[in-house]
Structures are given as C-alpha cells and as structure tokens.
C-alpha cells in the first residue's frame, strides 16, 4: 500500500478453498478495513484444489484492475494450481509492474517445477529465503546440498532450501536444546524447557521461542522472483517480530492479545 510497495488501492484476495486461505483472507480483509479500504475495493475468490483453468479468473482480475486504481493480488493459491495461474497471468499480459501478485505459499521449492519467465517481479512473503547472505545460511545450504548429493536425492545438483526446511531445521535444534536443558526426552519436561529457547537461524537472526504461546519470533522478508527461481529480498523487518496467534484485526480477539 505504501508508495514503495506500489501504492496499491484495490486488492484481489485469491486462494485455494481451504482453511489457511480462508482464515488469512479474513484477517487481511479486517486489516484492509482498518486501513480504510472499502469492501468494493476487495475481491475475494476461491478455487478448488488442483484447479488449472484460470482464464475466467484472470479476466475478472483484469476487469477489477482496470477501474483506474492500482491493484495488487494476494495469492494463497496452493501447490499445483500456481503454475497454470502464473502462466495464464503472463500470457494474458499482466506483468508484475501492472498487477503485482504477492504469494504466501510459493517458495524456492515450488518454483523448481516452474517456468519462471512469467513470474518475474512477483512477490512472496516468507521468514527465510535461500538468497539471504550470512555465514549461517551459507553453511546451512552447503550442508543440505552435500546431504542431497550423498543420498542421491533426485536432481541433487539443483536442490534448494526454503522456509519450511529452515523452520524444521530450527525446530529440531531447539528441541534438542530443550532436551539438553530438561535432561530428559519426556514430553512434558521438554515442553516446559522449550519456551525461551534461542537459536541462531539461517535467516540471519537469533530466533526466540515465545514463553507463553511457544511460537517463534521470526523476521519477515518480502522477496521478488528472479529469473533463476530465487528471490530478491526487497523488504525485511529490522528484527524478528513476536508471533501473535490471534489477529488483533479481528473483532473478539482483544482479550487474547497477551497470548
């Protein structure tokens, strides 16, 4: 919405029809309302899993975007449907500079099966990108690539790391630390030792596990797709932010902000 982000005034919330996109878009809509965006400037649309014919939806987005206000698409399209979606988007002549698409479920691994030409400049939001430059990440990537080669993972020479991998990597290490602290693998004891654990993550920050809700405090990155299927970080938070399991923008969640 800022000038730097493209000053978008209208928003298309496009997702696959299941819990995650529905909830995400519910929060997004509430957030946009709080910023003064009206309902008529929000288009919400869902497609079934594996949907592959995006002709009509792209035509609708075009129509929606042509009303004279800068439009952005927030995509929570899941998995396989992304390739047909972006292909159609590119072929229909909608470039990232006209109608940028921000995706929440497209990362490095997903882009391995994709012709990235039509995706250039579209955005993704994650807590980690493979392109982040720091020694921890370099070591993490190296370790994974060596492991893939050694274990004959298919196409081992092109394996990529992504946010879920980093999250798992961090998670397992934190668990190990908690086990060491608790001196036991007993579930309850480990849970008790878990809160407040810290770990120097490949994302370039030292992550902390929240003491109350056991979610991680993580940085947020926004990246633009490059031609090689990697992401160019164009925006990031200065430091990790606290995870809030209950959105402050949804009515009824006020009492849960401390959680």
């Amino acid at each position: 919405m800022s000038a730097e982000g493209g000053s978008a005034k209208r928003f298309v919330l496009l997702g696959t029809d299941y819990v995650y996109p529905r909830t995400t878009n519910k929060i997004l809509r509430a957030f946009l309302h709080s910023k003064g965006v009206k309902d008529e400037d929000i288009m919400e649309e869902y497609t079934p899993f594996g949907h592959s014919d995006y002709q009509t939806i792209i035509a609708n987005i075009k129509k929606f975007a042509s009303a004279g206000k800068k439009t952005a698409v927030v995509s929570t399209i899941n998995g396989d449907s992304n390739v047909p979606f972006y292909k159609e988007l590119g072929n229909a002549g909608l470039k990232a500079t006209d109608v940028p698409v921000v995706a929440f479920s497209v990362g490095e691994e997903e882009l391995r099966g994709v012709d990235t030409k039509p995706l250039l400049g579209h955005l993704a939001a994650w807590n980690y990108f493979m392109t982040i430059k720091n020694p921890v990440n370099a070591a993490f990537i190296k370790k994974y690539q060596d492991w893939a080669k050694k274990n004959n993972v298919p196409n081992a020479d092109t394996v990529v790391t992504n946010d879920p991998m980093e999250a798992t990597y961090v998670g397992i290490h934190m668990w190990a630390q908690a086990v060491e602290k608790a001196k036991s693998t007993d579930t309850d004891k480990v849970i008790a030792a878990m809160g407040g654990q810290t770990f120097k993550a490949p994302s370039g920050f030292t992550l902390t596990m929240d003491k109350t809700n056991h979610h991680l405090h993580k940085p947020v990155y926004i990246g633009e797709v490059k031609a090689d299927g990697q992401f160019n970080v164009v925006w990031k938070t200065k430091e990790p932010i606290r995870a809030q399991p209950w959105s402050p923008f949804i009515a009824g969640n006020e009492s849960k902000q401390g959680l």
Binding site: D17, Y18, R22, Y46, P48, F49
Partner: peptide, 15 residues
C-alpha cells in the same frame, strides 16, 4: 465430491 470440497457448501470443505 466437488460440491463437498467447497467450503460454502457447509460441510467443512476439504478438511
């Protein structure tokens, strides 16, 4: 199946 996959149908969608 397509009908029940829709969340609007009122049967919990794909979950």
């Amino acid at each position: 199946m397509l009908l029940f996959f829709r969340n609007e149908t009122g049967f919990g969608g794909n979950n």
